[in-house]
Design a protein around this nucleic acid. Structure first.
Length: 809
RNA sequence: GCCCGGGUGGUGGAAUGGUAUACACGCACGACUUAAAAUCGUGUGCCGCAAGGCAUGUGGGUCCGAGUCCCACCCCGGGCACCA
């Protein structure tokens, strides 16, 4: 009997599957329903780590199960290969990002193949290939034509270390998501996507998606819709156009608005437009601009500000109130100015206390305001004709009154900002625009796409906010598509999240050179029914993809408006020390040696067994891996042992029942993505088979069934046993899941639990389906129970058929 | 501060309101072996000789019955955060 040597058989079968094109998916199969299982395509960072195995090899179990259940399953893979880390790594190693990235892709492709996953490599995409990014540029142009891509001068997040602009989503706690440097605010002209124009639908359409609630909530919070009023405070002695506009969610408290606060950004805008501000004020604005977002957040407790030196008119109370400039008001939210209601807003309260500004209560409150504002809604007081109204009623009435006075109206506001997609870095997709001195920015004609990334030698980022592409002097010079005059190409590249916002579309038609994907092929596969990935993408990739999908839909370029109908997040595998794996901690597990020693099947199955897929947060333990390898070894010998002699066809009933039940159970576990309990049921099954059939009573059909149940988890060993040992021609991975005989699922006997006052006292084996009366007489006849009853009658007898009887005494 | 998750043996974890601790890992003992590894078998929540009692973060509650539902609190992880 040969030993189980995983490394040997795994290579063999991987080659076999590839030669037979076993996992290449047809666009159409008349007998099968199409189903795409999407996983987040990897970034080619260099080496495959355990996290990749977790992300790709575990969904593969589901993929294989679907295939066995008659689906035409596409399991595509590709590389998200542009981006900063590649560039930084290339700078460090003094090689070109393209060479570094390509080398990594080659290596990782090989490592990915060692998983034995059912990837369709014929559909592989790579975002750095011109035939891919041509369409990334094309999509940009469609959005530009639709007014959804635009260039604007705004305050943006600037990472001084990476020397590039960052989207809001890429700033975490005031720091660059990539390198951790404190982010600065810079006013720069940037290309933006108008994601805010879909804000409502991005929230409302979440409802119909089969996504984790946590992800939906994260997106809702991120978009941050709030409803309130947009209100104009006129400035006495100034024209209507010089009114100060504010947004508030509490128009019911407007009678308590005792001053206005304007953000430094808005004040600066006024100065630019000719407002004569004093030197102190200018100095304050300059100082607050110097603060990083981080410092600004640290100053929460101690608010600073300065009087603007003039008043505005409260349109409801018709009293003049002072205007202040303070950086606790954000320039980028709402109108950049607020009405301050210190009695009912803690921030305004702190500010009013510090600068001695009046505090006026307009919501009835039994306690005196001491150190805190009363932020609750309630009954209005000191609010003229609105006294006695509830906040919710007053919100409507006051908004209406403002509208009548032409001083305001109902408004929704969002925390979400437009997506800044310009990056001042080399390793990305060039933005297909041309800047002409006479015509301004003009789109590159579609016929000239792709605008290829020039092969620069010096691609280092610059401090001045200009992209390295500006150094490509010959590339830079072009002619204006409109006037034919001399013009320059746009030198910014796109955020890589643009590349990854549409890759799943390309999988349906990866070699199309006339279109990003044909409507017909997209219709066969999309929207994506199921997407596995990491929770870190909740408010980035997942939100961006939804936006691009909605934008393309709005231009009738696709005919669905949500990209991913189902989404499942996976958990994380920790290092053996129980901490998150990281190079600096030195606790990163390299899967390659484990695969070499125990096999891909063992690694896959161990990861599946480790814990619930969606919430795993457990350490990698070698002992656990060995445990699973031991199980596979037992499978190996179990199947071999009984083929040494001749296979017997005797169908023992209990084995048949066990296999049938396992097929049902394991199938249902996989369907629910409970891979860990799926594995445990396989183990249970083998335990039972060994106990009952140690002497070889399984029929050939029963061995077949056993291997089929193992196949999704351990595709190599099951193939080896299927073809080499059982002698089948053709792959086990083309076989259907064992048919389930419902009639065999019924139990012949069940254990009835007997409780007295809810405590377990006895258990008996009975035939299923006993009536309450039958059960009662059996239960009360039990010696153990008689002891508790002491001759008396139970007060109550609770019977759950085939499960339990509870006697209350 | 607000909003989500989650606290179960020595460890990873299992459990439609109905036998808590399945399945593994680890450990102990045993078999095989000159020996070890591998493999196989038995045991393994805690207290107790036993009968029995106590255990799912803590304290209450609902229920015949609570890991599971409700209330309060503690701890851990995550998201958002001067968002008006």
């Amino acid at each position: 009997m040969p030993k189980y040597t995983a490394a040997k058989i795994e290579k063999k079968w991987q080659k076999y599957w590839e030669t037979k094109k076993l996992y290449e998916t047809a666009d159409f199969d008349r007998d099968k329903r199409n189903f795409m299982v999407l996983v987040e395509f990897p970034y080619p960072s260099g080496d495959l780590h355990v996290g990749h195995w977790y992300a790709f090899a575990i969904p593969d179990i589901y993929v294989r199960y679907l295939r066995m259940n008659g689906f035409n399953v596409m399991y595509p893979i590709g590389f998200d290969a542009f981006g900063l880390p590649a560039e930084n790594a290339a700078i460090q190693r003094d090689i070109h990002p393209r060479d570094w990235t390509k080398k990594n892709i080659t290596k990782m492709s090989k490592q990915l193949r060692s998983m034995g996953a059912a990837f369709d490599w014929s559909r592989e995409v790579s975002t750095i290939e011109p035939q891919y990014y041509k369409w990334t540029q094309w999509i940009f142009l469609q959005l530009y034509k639709a007014g959804l891509a635009y260039r604007a001068q705004t305050f943006v997040n600037w990472c001084p270390k990476d020397k590039t602009v960052l989207a809001n989503e890429q700033v975490k706690e005031g720091r660059c998501d990539r390198c951790g440097t404190a982010v600065e605010q810079r006013e720069l002209a940037q290309w933006m996507f108008k994601i805010t124009s879909f804000a409502d639908r991005l929230i409302d359409d979440l409802e119909d998606l089969d996504w984790p609630e946590a992800t939906k909530l994260a997106q809702k919070n991120w978009i941050g819709r709030s409803e309130g009023a947009h209100i104009r405070f006129s400035v006495p002695g100034q024209a209507e156009s010089h009114s100060i506009e504010v947004f508030t969610t509490r128009p019911d408290t407007i009678f308590g608005a005792t001053f206005l606060v304007v953000s430094p950004e808005l004040a600066q805008k006024w100065i630019d437009m000719g407002w004569q501000a004093g030197p102190d004020l200018k100095d304050y604005i300059a100082r607050s601009f110097k603060k990083t977002e981080l410092q600004r957040q640290e100053d929460v407790r101690d608010k600073t500000g300065i009087s603007a030196g003039f008043n505005a008119l409260n349109p409801m109370s018709e009293k003049e109130i002072p205007v202040w400039v303070a950086d606790y008001v954000l320039g980028h939210y709402g109108t950049g100015a607020i009405m301050a209601v210190p009695a009912h807003d803690q921030r305004d309260f702190d500010f009013a206390k510090k600068y001695g500004l009046p505090i006026k209560e307009v919501i009835l409150n039994e306690d005196d305001l001491k150190d805190e504002a009363n932020e609750n809604e309630g009954v209005l007081i000191s609010s003229g004709q609105f006294d006695g109204m509830s906040s919710s009623e007053a919100k409507k009435k006051i908004t209406q009154a403002l509208k009548d006075k032409k001083a305001g109206e109902f408004q929704k506001n969002y925390r979400l900002h437009d997506w800044v997609l310009s990056r001042q870095r080399y390793w990305g997709v060039p933005i297909p625009m041309v800047n002409c001195p006479t015509c301004g920015y003009q789109p590159v004609p579609e016929s000239e796409l792709p605008v290829k990334l020039p092969p620069l030698k010096d691609f280092l980022p610059a401090d001045d906010g200009r992209s390295p592409l500006a150094k490509a002097t010959t590339w830079l010079k072009t002619k204006c598509p409109k006037c034919d005059g001399v013009a320059e190409r746009e030198t910014d590249t796109m955020d890589t999240f643009v590349d990854s916002s549409w890759y799943f579309l390309r999988y349906t038609d990866p070699h199309n050179d006339k279109d990003f994907a044909s409507m017909e092929k997209m219709a066969r596969w999309l929207p994506v029914p199921l997407y596995f990935g990491g929770a870190e993408h909740n408010t980035m990739h997942l939100l961006y993809s939804r936006f691009i999908t909605k934008a393309l839909r709005s231009q009738n370029l696709i005919d669905f408006s949500e990209p991913f109908l189902g989404r499942r997040n996976h958990g994380t595998v920790l290092g053996p020390d129980g901490h998150k794996m990281s190079k600096s901690k030195g606790n990163v597990v390299d899967p390659d040696p484990e695969v070499a020693a125990y096999g891909a099947d063992a690694v896959r199955m161990y990861l599946a067994f480790l814990g619930p897929y969606n919430e795993l947060n457990a350490p990698w333990k070698k002992e656990g891996l060995i445990g699973v390898a031991r199980f596979l070894n037992r499978v190996w010998y179990f199947v071999h042992r009984h083929t040494d002699t001749k296979l017997k066809s005797a169908d023992s009933q209990d084995i048949k029942v066990a296999l049938n039940r396992a097929a049902k159970e394991i199938g249902s576990q996989i369907k629910q993505h409970k891979f860990n309990t799926g594995v445990s049921h396989l183990m249970k099954l083998l335990n039972e088979l060994e106990d009952r059939a140690g002497d070889g009573r399984l029929s050939k059909e029963q061995y077949r069934a056993l291997l089929k149940l193992i196949a999704p988890f351990a595709p190599h060993i099951s193939e080896e046993l299927w073809q080499t040992v059982l002698g089948h021609e053709g792959s086990i991975h083309l076989e259907p899941w064992p048919e389930i005989d419902e009639s065999l699922l019924a139990e012949e006997s069940v254990t009835l639990i007997i409780q007295v006052n809810g405590k377990l006292r006895d258990s008996i084996t009975i035939k299923p389906g006993l009536s309450e009366a039958e059960a009662r007489s059996i239960v009360l006849a039990s010696d153990k129970i008689k002891k508790y009853l002491a001759g008396g009658e139970p007060k109550k007898f609770i019977y759950v058929q085939d499960k339990l009887a509870n006697i209350v005494i």
